[in-house]
Structure formats: C-alpha cells, structure tokens
Design a binder for these strands. Structure first.
Lengths: 206, 206
DNA sequence: GTCTATAAATCGATAGAC
DNA sequence: GTCTATCGATTTATAGAC
C-alpha cells in the first residue's frame, strides 16, 4: 500500500507545481497570457504532459480562481475581529482594498475576468457555501449585528446592505486596477470617504 | 477640386462602415471577439483592405472607445437637468446605470478592458478635456453647488466626492456585468440604497 | 483601391512512440 | 508518465497581382 501512496503524493506535488507556475504567469502576463505552453515550459515538461493533470486550460483557471477566493477570505478573516460592527466594516473594507492592490492579478481573475470563474467562487457545489459566500457573509453578519443593536431601521436588509458596501468597495479597486490615471483621488482617501459616508448615511446614529 | 472631395467622402463613409461593423461585433462577441477578419467579412471587403483605413486593430478599438465615452456623456447630459444638485446626482446615477446596462459591451470596452482605452477617453489630447472628463465634470459641478449652498462641510473636496460617487456606481454595474448570480440584490435597489446612503452621509442635512 | 495569397506566430488539444 | 510530433484552427499583418 505504500507505493501507490507515494505515487499519489508525487502526482499531487506536480499538480501544485503546475498551479504555482500558472499563478506566476497570470501575475506576470494577465489571464489572457496564461497558456498551456507557458505552463509546460515553466515546470519543464512538455505541453502534452500538463493534460495528465488537468483536463483543460479552463480547469486550471477554475482552480486558480478557487484558491484566489480562499486567499481573499483568509485576508478578510483577521480583519473581522473588531467588536463594534461598524468599526469592523471599516476594517473589512481596508483589508479588502489591501488584498486587491497587493494581489492585483488574483483580484482581476476572480472579479474582473469571467462570470463562470466569479460565480464559481461563491457556491462551490450547489448548496455549499464556498469561500466567496463566506467572505460576503462577514459583511452580512456585521450589518445583521447593527440591526440587532437597533442602529439600523427595522426594515433594513443586512444582505442587501452588505452587497451595497461590497459593490462600492469593488468599484474603487476595480477602477484603480484598470486605469492608470483615474480616479485621481488616492485610493485610501476614496475608501475612507466612501466608507464613512455610506455608514453615516445608513446608521441612525453614530 | 470636386473629385478628391468625393473620394474623401467615400473614404470617410467606409471608415464609418468599418466602425459600425466593429461596434456590432464587440456587442455580440465582446472585445476579445473583435478581429480584423470579422470586420472585413461584415463590410464585405478582404481583411487586407481594412488596413487601408485603420493601421491596426488597436486603432479601431481606440476609436470605438472614444465614441463610447462620447455616448456616455450624451446619455448623462439630459439627466443633469434637475435644479437641486442632490436630486441631480441621483438622476445622474440612474442614467449612468441605465447606460451601462443598455450598452454593456460599450461600457465594458471603456471601463473594464484596458487602461490605455479608459485613460484615452478622459484627456483626449493632453490638456483638452475629453468626453470622460466632461462626464465626471457633471458630478463635480453638482458637488460644487452643494458646497456653495453650504450643504457640504467647508473642507469638502467636490472632485474627490464626485469620484467617490462615480466609483461606487461603477462598482454596482461592473459586478452586474461580470457575474451572472452576484450581487443577488437587484441593480435598482443597490443603486437607490447606495445613492441615498452616500448622499445622506455626506450632506449635513437633507 | 481592392483583391488573393500567404507569411509568421499563436493557440488548445490529441495520437502514438517509448 | 512523459515526450515528440502534429493536427486544425486561430490570429495580425504584409506582399504583390490586378
């Protein structure tokens, strides 16, 4: 029983090597620049060998996307520690922006490339939460707590408010990642102004 | 002198035909699906003939982008009629979202594809305003009026606030255009909630 | 000015030798 | 399991006949 296990380990190791190489390429050349040939060259195998580990280029991209969502969730989780939900939302916004700017190609891949990758990050298998859903859940939870504390109107929908906060933050980073010169205002200032105004406007009182 | 003018008209006409065909293709197949061959087929010329009117695929995309920004400005201008600046901002947000959803491929082209296209729409020639700058100017002007009316703090920066409003709106539509399933909340509801909360939070009083 | 033909470079994916 | 070789289809752009 030992030999097949070793083989399985080796197979898994090369799988990881391929994914690492793919990540590097996406980071350097963007998603369109990810080709089977480049991957093969990077791991020093022939192009055909890659197909023994992944059935297609899309499968590799899908796996990268899944790992990207997991990384986002990992980056957000430590920012969800604040006791005060409002403070926590501001922290989550900052962590989200930091993640996007530090790993621009990962962010582009999961949120700016293709619907099939983005949607896949939310519901892993139909019904299962998935890392994207969990990340959004951090926001939902904070708004739900604000509502429990009667700092939001009784009619407020925590999920909708979480999506408002998320889309607004996404708007800042996605434009910053696309354009060189616009928006002119520094990212931090945009985020802080947006975050404060949005929460001021939503909450009954500070 | 008449003949060269007629020739110039014919040349300009075919130029427009090429651009029209390119627009249709971008709308149908997305930006990546825009190829010289498809354009040539659509206008019933050979691929090589296109190069007599445009030096490259990028030049066509650049022209499309410029026209896209002009169309955005045209779609926003009638929404800038409200006397009350706050009401005007809400109207501009609605017109912006409507434009993006009605012409998704145009919106993708000018704001979600490539930096060189997006930046080009703002400052046409260095120094000149460009349609993108004008569109943003509609927002800046509204915030500037709010400041004149003492409904914003004296320290408020109208340009920064305009960019906050713009990025937040862009966040809604860009995610809607990318993902099938997320955000779950309907676009209109996201926009109205965001718009109201943001302006409530920024303005001293309603 | 327009065409045909083609260069030169990609790509994803597969077949079959070893 | 890996490689070589290649299919078949892309693409942008150009050269040269008409």
């Amino acid at each position: 029983m030992a030999v097949p296990q070793r083989r399985a380990r080796q197979k898994a190791a090369l799988r990881e090597e391929i994914l690492d190489a793919a990540r590097t390429i996406v980071l350097r050349d963007g998603f369109d620049g990810l080709t089977m040939r480049k991957i093969a060259e990077a791991v020093e195998y022939s192009p055909g060998a890659i197909y023994l580990y992944f059935p297609s280029r899309d499968a590799i991209a899908h796996e990268l996307c899944h790992q990207g969502f997991a990384a986002l969730l990992e980056a957000l989780t430590p920012a969800a520690g604040a006791v005060d939900p409002r403070e926590r939302l501001a922290d989550l916004g900052r962590a989200y922006v930091r993640f996007a700017l530090e790993r621009p190609e990962t962010y582009r891949l999961i949120f700016m490339e293709d619907a099939k990758f983005t949607d896949a990050g939310f519901a892993d298998e139909p019904g299962e939460p998935g890392p994207g859903e969990c990340a959004l859940g951090l926001l939902v939870r904070a708004f739900a707590e604000l509502k429990e504390q009667r700092r939001l109107p009784a009619t407020a929908d925590p999920h909708a408010l979480a999506e408002v906060f998320w889309t607004a933050t996404h708007g800042i980073v996605s434009l910053k990642l696309i354009c060189r010169d616009y928006p002119v205002t520094p990212t931090d200032e945009l985020l802080e102004t947006m975050s404060r105004a949005l929460l001021d406007g939503l909450l009954k009182t500070k």
